[in-house]
């Protein structure tokens, strides 16, 4: 009997073990379901939203500030547009922002971190020094300044955030790469005549993937939060594009009577950030890494 159990354990691959650990973690599963909800809602927005055209510049003053009811599940906004439909489309904007920022910040930070961790001397000093300086800049203040210089828009918000975001990835990858670079097998690869590029891409980078993916998931939460804050302050996506932060800012003028216009997009942001955060925590336990 004992022999059989042992055999089964051996068959489990590392990936399968990780999956089992993930599945056994209810928090991570809830997080994954929340993220899936947000992503699916964003992708299939035209099919799910009760009033897909309300994502644009529709005006229907008869239903101005309509309270939540059978037609408008989450009420209507100041020009009579369905809040639920706009929230669903708002997820699209949030996820686009996340995608854009990560597409710039992860490779940039990753490459700089790898280089600083692998090469010693002035490369390391220069990159870590610059990273530390950038980390000391209050991100929102800087993003506001950048977002102001460039005209407020989704693309410019992406650039403004990405310009600051790469630093965290650089620091993280640097830490991992530095410790991996000291391993014997890296030394062995070097002695066997492998090029720097080969060592970086084939020996060191694979060891950083777990950390990067956990960090990226957690990042998604904070980029959504950050982007929503920027647009709440009026420096993000411009109307009539439905952006969750802008919707909160718009609805704020009509508090406390028409609370749905603020609470629906506000809690939608919270739902998305919470989901990504739980999923990120789950992945961290699964890969057993420190981020």
């Amino acid at each position: 009997m004992a022999a059989i159990v042992e055999e089964q354990v051996e068959i489990l691959s590392a990936r399968r073990m990780a999956w089992l650990r993930f599945r056994a973690n209810p928090v991570a599963v809830i997080g994954a379901l929340m993220v899936a909800t947000v992503v699916l809602a964003a992708i299939f927005a035209p099919l799910i939203a009760p009033f897909p055209d309300h994502a644009g510049a529709v005006i229907d003053f008869r239903n101005k500030h309509a309270a939540p009811d059978g037609t408008y599940l989450l009420g209507a906004d100041k020009v009579g547009r369905d809040v639920l439909s706009r929230v669903i489309y708002g997820f699209r904007v949030s996820l686009l922002l996340v995608g854009g920022v990560l597409a710039i910040a992860v490779p940039l930070g990753g490459i700089l971190g790898l280089l600083a961790g692998y090469f010693t001397g002035w490369v390391e000093t220069l990159i870590t020094g610059f990273t530390n300086v950038m980390l000391a800049i209050p991100p929102l203040v800087m993003a506001l300044a950048v977002g102001n210089v460039l005209t407020p828009s989704l693309t410019n918000a992406m650039i403004a955030i990405a310009l600051l975001w790469w630093t965290w990835h650089a620091r993280l990858v640097y830490r991992v790469a530095k410790s991996v670079a000291a391993e014997d097998y890296v030394e062995a690869a070097r002695l066997a005549g492998a090029s720097h590029l080969h060592v970086l891409c084939r020996e060191i980078l694979p060891n950083c993937i777990a950390v990067i993916s956990v960090k990226t998931t957690l990042d998604a939460a904070f980029i959504i939060l950050f982007g929503a804050t920027l647009s709440f302050l009026g420096l993000g996506v411009q109307p009539p594009t439905p952006d969750l932060g802008t919707m909160v800012a718009d609805g704020r003028q009509f508090l406390p009577e028409h609370w749905w216009g603020v609470l629906a997009p506000g809690f939608a942001i919270f739902f998305a950030t919470l989901g990504f955060n739980l999923l990120g925590d789950g992945l961290r336990d699964m890969f057993d890494v420190e981020v």
Binding site: A221, L225, A228, T229, V248, G266, F267, F270, L274, N277
Partner: peptide, 8 residues
Amino acid sequence: GVTMPSFL
């Protein structure tokens, strides 16, 4: 505390 937007 960590995930809720401070404006919300």
